[in-house]
């Protein structure tokens, strides 16, 4: 057995301690989340931003930006996000790198469960963007739990000494591939794009790891098997299709759909799956706001997302201080 007996891991999940209590927890640290944090932190609200990583979102992987008002540029998306974060931090907002796995919005004291622990808060802002997947590949649903997984830390131990595939190009895919090397004999990293879209150091570590074989510019076509995953059919750009014999397929692909899975259907949506919000960006649950690209009726521009964040921040301040009327000015 290889799992860590460290009870500290579990303990940190209990939360509830003074350090885990916030006025505002913002999920997603892109332009919407960071802008909201600038305003809430400046209004003396104890603010936490939970983000998967600088290059996890749409802006983080954008190459050159020259049209963000006040920032002539050109700057990279990651640089622009860093400027916003530094500004929010200067007002006291705290940023952590983590993945949110669930929220409980049933009470006034709301809970956000992340990998490293539970956080309690009066207000939750959802700013997770819209890089969720729109479709699944053939075989993916059929073999879910039979070799298809979305969580290497959860399921890695079932693939000891086996050959597995990780499909994706971002930080998360690379981190999970590296985690799987602790168990698996070999990890095929199937990258759909011609290059990785991840932090440089992480990319270097993954591409030079003796157990990881990287295939750039290669699309996942199908997950095949008979009761269990037996392989992944892939198509390298300009090459012939091939089937890699693997028993596990860990999928971390992205698309253009709002990321709302961690909400576990606790919020009202429109028939098309989009979250319902009012003009202050508040969802149908008081104290829960949604901002930025997550709202699918949106113009997907950083400056619009930032403005959403500010509108929600103003409303959150009023919500927390029990004021009935939401005013549009900020004093």
């Amino acid at each position: 057995m290889s799992f860590d007996l460290n009870l500290g891991l579990g303990m940190s999940n209990l939360g509830g301690g003074e350090d885990n209590n916030y006025d505002v927890v913002i999920i997603g640290g892109g332009p919407a989340g960071a802008s909201a944090a600038i305003y809430t932190a400046r209004a003396d609200l104890r603010t936490l931003v939970i983000d998967k990583g600088l290059t996890a979102g749409a802006l983080g992987i954008t190459g050159k930006i020259s049209n963000y008002p006040g920032v002539p540029g050109p700057v990279t998306g990651a640089e622009l996000v860093e400027i916003m974060r530094a500004q929010a931090e200067s007002f006291g907002a705290k940023f952590i790198t983590d993945k949110v796995v669930g929220v409980d919005i049933s009470g006034e004291r709301k809970m956000v469960m992340a990998g490293t622990g539970a956080f309690y808060t009066k207000v939750i802002m959802l700013a997770t963007g819209s890089m969720g997947r729109t479709s699944v590949v053939k075989g993916e649903e059929e073999f879910l739990g039979r070799g298809v997984s979305y969580c290497a830390t959860c399921d890695g131990a079932f693939f000891r000494n086996q050959t597995v595939a990780v499909i994706g190009n971002n930080d998360e895919a690379l981190e999970e591939a590296l985690f799987l090397t602790k168990f698996a004999a070999k990890v095929h990293l199937v990258v759909p794009t011609p290059e990785l879209k991840a932090r440089e150091a992480l990319a270097a570590e993954a591409t030079t790891h003796p157990k990881i074989e990287v295939q750039l510019g290669t699309r996942l076509k199908e997950i095949v098997g008979n009761g269990q995953v037996a392989g992944v059919r892939v198509h390298p750009r300009g090459g012939d299709e091939q089937t890699l014999p693997v028993t596990g397929a860990f999928v971390y692909l992205q698309g253009g759909k709002p990321i709302t899975d961690y909400l576990m259907a606790q919020l009202e949506t429109e028939p098309n799956g989009c979250l319902v919000v009012d003009k202050e960006m508040q969802t149908t649950v008081p104290g829960v706001f949604a901002i930025g690209d997550l709202l699918c009726t949106h113009i997907k521009q950083a400056v619009i997302a930032a403005a959403d964040g500010v509108i929600a921040a103003v409303a959150a301040d009023k919500y927390i201080h029990g004021r009935k009327a939401v005013q549009t000015d900020w004093k």
């Binding site: 891991l9 579990g10 796995v101 669930g102 959860c154 399921d155 890695g156 576990m264």
Partner: peptide, 10 residues
């Protein structure tokens, strides 16, 4: 479950 699975307690 596995002890390293953040989704499992739910």
């Amino acid at each position: 479950v596995t002890p390293t699975c953040p989704y499992c307690p739910q």
